[in-house]
Design a protein around this nucleic acid. Structure first.
Length: 207
DNA sequence: AGGCCTCGAGATCG
DNA sequence: CTCGAGGCCT
């Protein structure tokens, strides 16, 4: 049998249930996967303590895997939010030969290992949500939770996972979780997606 | 101490 | 997706 990871278009088309449409979709998805945000790659490496948030923090200071891989514990620890434990784990991860091989293989396969470009909106001062912290619960009408998170962050806001006294607004969708009750008990303001969009209007910003 | 993050578990849904 | 436990950071 052929190697699953090296099938070409012809070979896939020969498979039962794989005609033009699904085959094209497969290869398109494969191509697209090589162009993911660097933070996503980083978060997927399995470095203890490095999930999506810390990965983004790292990428904001080190725009390429190579730059990050050569950083020292001291340098990493200088980043606000990075303590000695996580800094050490990052450095140790990149020291392992088998991990370096993984990086090399990904790169060889065409996966982008640098951050494409820097953010835009920040420079234009369109940050109506600066200093505000949001929590999302339930299903929103026109966007996924991730899209909402990206939208909020793109306008300067923060999104966290649990409601606390520091939460500015709870963004509530359909069938909310227990966060709604907690927000009510803490007196945290609740808004819906439409209200969020109105908050964005102020700066003349759109998605 | 308090807040935030990661990550695994179990519910929910298309 | 939501929730909660465990752990890191300030």
């Amino acid at each position: 049998m052929a190697d699953l990871y090296n099938l070409d278009r012809e070979q896939v088309l020969a498979l039962e249930g794989w005609a033009e449409k699904s085959t094209d979709a497969l290869f398109a998805a494969l191509e697209a996967s090589k162009n993911r945000p660097l933070a996503r790659i980083l978060a997927a490496l399995g470095i203890r303590g490095v999930g999506t948030t810390v990965a983004e923090l790292l990428v904001s200071h080190y725009p390429s895997i190579d730059a990050l891989a050569t950083a020292s514990v001291e340098e990493l620890q200088a980043i606000e939010g990075m303590g000695p434990v996580t800094a050490q784990r990052v450095v140790e991860w990149f020291q392992r030969p088998r991990h370096r091989e993984i990086i090399a293989k990904l790169r060889h396969a065409g996966v982008r290992m640098e951050e494409a470009e820097t953010r835009d909106r920040e420079a234009r001062d369109e940050q109506p949500l600066a200093g505000l912290t949001f929590v999302i619960t339930g299903t929103l009408p026109t966007m996924s939770r991730n899209e909402a998170k990206a939208l909020i962050e793109a306008h300067g806001g923060n999104v966290t996972g649990s409601v606390s006294a520091k939460t500015s607004y709870l963004l509530v969708g359909e069938s909310p979780g227990s966060k709604l009750r907690k927000a009510e008990s803490l007196g945290v303001l609740t808004i819906d997606e439409a209200t969020l969009r109105q908050m964005l209007e102020g700066a003349g910003a759109s998605v």
